Computed example of a mutant assay.
Amino acid sequence: EATHNGKVVLKCDWSGAVSQNPFLSFKFKGAAKGEKVQVKWTDNKGESRTDEAAIA
């Protein structure tokens, strides 16, 4: 799940063959360069993580 200013901008459920170090890229409207997007995920072992990235 990816959020911007508290609003969900991407929600997906992947399974199977996803790289150990995947690259994720997507577009959405309503954001400006430098603002933050928060990305949360849970892996196939049940471990979760949250990271933040600046919009380029």
Rank of each mutant, 00 (worst) to 15 (best):
V9N: 01
V9T: 01
L10A: 12
L10I: 02
K11Y: 15
K11G: 09
C12P: 07
C12G: 12
C12E: 15
C12Y: 11
C12S: 14
D13M: 07
D13V: 10
D13H: 13
D13Q: 12
D13R: 13
W14P: 09
W14I: 05
S15D: 08
S15Q: 06
S15R: 07
A17F: 12
A17D: 11
A17L: 14
V18H: 03
S19T: 04
S19D: 15
Q20W: 13
Q20P: 10
Q20K: 15
N21K: 14
P22W: 03
P22V: 02
L24E: 07
S25H: 12
S25E: 13
K27R: 11
F28E: 02
F28K: 00
K29W: 05
A31T: 02
A32I: 04
K33T: 10
G34I: 05
E35A: 02
K36L: 12
V37W: 01
V37T: 00
V37G: 00
Q38I: 10
Q38Y: 07
Q38M: 12
Q38V: 15
V39P: 00
V39Y: 04
K40S: 14
T42E: 08
D43F: 02
N44E: 06
N44Q: 08
N44A: 09
K45L: 11
K45E: 11
K45H: 13
K45S: 14
G46T: 00
G46E: 05
E47I: 09
E47L: 10
E47W: 05
S48P: 06
S48M: 02
S48H: 08
T50E: 14
T50C: 06
T50K: 05
E52Y: 11
